[in-house]
Structure formats: C-alpha cells, structure tokens
Design a binder for these strands. Sequence first.
DNA 1: CTCTTAAATGCAACTTAGTCGCATTTACTT
DNA 2: AAGTAAATGCGACTAAGTTGCATTTAAGAG
Lengths: 124, 124
Amino acid sequence: MQIEKIIEEKNLKLTTARKELLGIFVASSKPLCFEDIKSKLNMDKATFYRNVSKFESEAILNSFESNDKKRYYEINESAHAHFVCNRCNQIECLKEKLDYKLRGYIIADVIFKGVCKQCNQMSL
Amino acid sequence: MQIEKIIEEKNLKLTTARKELLGIFVASSKPLCFEDIKSKLNMDKATFYRNVSKFESEAILNSFESNDKKRYYEINESAHAHFVCNRCNQIECLKEKLDYKLRGYIIADVIFKGVCKQCNQMSL
DNA sequence: CTCTTAAATGCAACTTAGTCGCATTTACTT
DNA sequence: AAGTAAATGCGACTAAGTTGCATTTAAGAG
C-alpha cells in the first residue's frame, strides 16, 4: 500500500494513527482541517496535530490558514494555487500552476480570496 | 481632519476610540493586528474588535489572516497583493495591482506565501 | 519469539485570539 | 440641558492548537 511506503520512506514509525491520518489526506481532493475529520478520527487531537506537524516537516503535507482561524492540510504534490471564498469559506484547489514570479522572493503558495463560482452565481 | 471625515461619511458615531484606531491604520504602511498595537491603544480589546469589524463592513478597512492565527487589518484603498513570509511571518504590501482573472470568480485579494527578500538573502 | 528502548499516544491542563452579555458611559438630536 | 440609542469596559467564555507527563507501542537486537 502506498500510504505505508510514504511513511516508511521518511523513516517514521508506522503507527495506526499515522496510517489512518495519511489515508484520509491521500483520499481527499481538498485541504482539510482537524474539524473536518475529527469525527472520523480514532485519535486524540494532540496526536492529530503532532502528526500533521511531523508530516509537514517531512514534506508529506503542506498547510495554510484560511479565513476561519483554522489550519488546512493537504498532500504535498503538484504545487497549485488555492481559492478561499469569503462568503462560504470553502477552499478550492485551482488547476493553476504556480508560475508566478517576484524578484528576490521564493513563492511557495498563492491564495486567491474573494467570491467563488457558486456564491457568485447565487447572487445573480 | 480626514480621519473624522471618513468616520462621519459612513454615519458612524465619532468616538474617541474610533478616531484613535483609524488614525493608527491611516498612518501605517502595512496591515496590523491587535497584538501589534495593543500597547498604544487606550481601549479594551472588545472595542478594538468591534470597531475594526464595523470599519470592515463599511469598507473602511479590509482584513485577512496571516500565518500566525491573527487577523490583520489595513486601510482599504488601492487593491494590492500581499506577501507573507513563512520564516519571519512579516507581511508586506506588494505594488502589484490585482489584475488576476479567474472565470466565474471575483478576486478580492491575492496572498503570496513563501520566503521574503530579507530571509532569502540571509540564507545565501 | 521475546526483550529493550525510544518514540508515539491519550489525557488533562493550559495558552491565546477573538467573542459575548451586561451594566455604564458617551455622542448626537431636539 | 435632557433623552436615547449606540459605544465602551469588564469579565466570562469559546475554540484551535500546544504541552507535560504517564502509559503504550513499533521496530530492532539477541
């Protein structure tokens, strides 16, 4: 199973909590916060946070904060931009590759904020 | 004084707290959070938050969350992008105008995250 | 397969940004 | 100057995330 391979490749102990957690992120098409998945999780929130933190430092996940004071995590594969809706607070992964450039800076992430397609449609 | 004019134009009561608060934002060249200015403020934090919130709904300020779980506020004038450094957590206003387009979406803000000039320089 | 040990977990207590209810004060109107 | 709705201060509260510590578990050695 690829999940176990990912964990072992980073020389992390293969615990049930880690398999469960990483499985959820691998299966998700969008960034998730603790709140989103806590009901599915068989682990303490401390374990969640310690593990996502470790996954992030091992470059398995990356994360950012949204509009709602929560940190969202997702599998670190192809770099892509995100759209955060100021109305519904939903986070979307955009297909946009991060080909933005700023002289002297390293750009790791781009977040667009505003009104998403759905909310925009509804207000017409 | 222009500060008083801004407040009165929105039909808000001209209180000392509001004058003080808006004065600080008008004078600042970058977004500020409560933490940044609390030592200068002669008001309770509840008053701070209620007022920035009201200013925001009146389009005097706008705000976003940074990397540090804090909400940053700035005067709402020319729309511009922001750069948030993942190392030093500093927020910079970029000169970039927001001429980004995404079909179906309304883009109100763009936040770049990564490593800022200074931190990038230091790591060479 | 069992023993050992360092690392991971669960739990409870804690931290901190921000919110809320309520009694008091203040800005504006007449 | 008086009345009133809105603003303020205070203290209690909420919720995300962190930390210390006792217990459990994964992985390697024998």
